[in-house]
Simulated assay, not measured.
Amino acid sequence: MYKFHEMPLAESSNIEAEIQEKLNVFQQFWNYVTSSETWGGYLWSLIDIVIIFIVTRAVIAIVHRIIDHTMSKKEKMRLNVNSRRMVTVAKLLKNVTSYTLNFIMLLLVLAEFNINLGPLLAGAGVVGLAIGFGAQSLVKDVITGFFIIFEDQFAVGDIIETGKFRGTVEVIGLRSTRIKNWTGEVHIIPNGMINEVTNFSLENSIAVIDIAVAYEEDAERTIQIIKETVEPMVAEIEDLLKVPEVLGVQTFGSTGVTIRVIAECKPYTHYGVTRIINARLKKALDAKGIDIPYPRLVTYQRAGKGGMNDGT
């Protein structure tokens, strides 16, 4: 004969409760899956994500167009332009814009899934604050370098002066700037130390030539000779942009008068242009017999008790 063991009543009730709980969970899941409100919410969330994506792409495209237009305008305005630098700056700004807008888009998409962004942003803020305190000078250099590039304060190939350094800019980085002096020294300056900059390459420079002529010479004749000498120079000197202008008598000295000539030339080429004009004017004045003043000493020699002879 078979013997049947009866299950305790309490254990049977627990099994039935567990089965009922699982059935309730499945029923809730089924109701959630088959609910029109659920799929409607997902549909609206999907639509919102698509809209966010499209708007982000459109904003990025518009900002990139603005950057290209701005760089093109700056390239036309600058006299000594470096096209590779403009392309580099444009790419840098485009990358920064893309990263920033894509990060914002990611936050908005996460918000559509009801993800709490507070702890994420708080953590990023704490990390950024720690980096800022730990590398203050580096952050200062990078920020200053970014604004140097963004504001187009100077470019590679420009001749600038900052502090006690003057020379040609060879490299502009987010961390430092490298300047080469005309004698060959290379100065590497952290961008955070660049407080004031004088740029000699943005506008045309003026060469100032002062010619000293003896008092015995006719000033009007000398000015006319100078004018005839400088007129053809604009076609002969590459860095000269206009015919040099003879201003006239500038000062009276102890041994002669000074006649001033000014000449507009390419940026930071006035030193070389001044030397060329000086050499040609000296040759022309010598050919016309115009004396350059020089110190003279007058002496008197006694001839005897009752008289005096003078001589030079």
Rank of each mutant, 00 (worst) to 15 (best):
Q136I: 09
I104A: 14
D158Q: 01
D152I: 00
D141K: 08
K94R: 15
L107F: 14
I115L: 15
I131K: 07
M86H: 10
L93F: 10
N116T: 13
S137W: 03
A124I: 14
V142I: 15
T97G: 09
M105G: 13
V96C: 11
G123M: 13
G128T: 10
V109S: 11
G145C: 06
R84D: 07
G157T: 02
G132D: 06
F150S: 03
A124W: 10
I115F: 15
T144V: 06
L93V: 05
Q153E: 03
S98T: 14
N102M: 11
V109M: 14
A130I: 14
M86C: 13
V139P: 03
D152H: 02
N116Y: 09
K140F: 05
G125E: 05
I131M: 07
L121S: 05
D141I: 03
G128Q: 09
E112P: 03
I104Q: 12
G118T: 15
E112H: 06
V139D: 00
A122H: 04
S98I: 12
T144N: 09
L117R: 10
V142N: 09
G157M: 00
V142L: 08
S137E: 11
L108T: 05
I131A: 11
V89Y: 01
L138S: 10
R85N: 00
E151C: 04
F103V: 12
L92Q: 10
S98C: 09
L107T: 09
G157N: 01
A124E: 06
I159L: 02
I149E: 00
V96D: 13
A135R: 08
P119H: 09
K94H: 04
Y99D: 13
T144S: 11
G157S: 03
K91T: 15
L129T: 13
F150W: 00
K91M: 15
L92I: 08
I104H: 08
A111M: 13
V96E: 11
F133P: 05
T100F: 15
L92W: 01
L107Y: 04
F154I: 03
V156N: 00
V87F: 07
S98Q: 12
V142H: 00
L108C: 12
N114C: 02
P119D: 00
E151T: 01
E151H: 04
V87H: 12
F147R: 02
E151M: 08
I115N: 05
L110D: 04
A155G: 04
L101Y: 09
T97V: 14
P119E: 01
G134S: 13
L138K: 06
F146M: 09
T144G: 03
G118H: 08
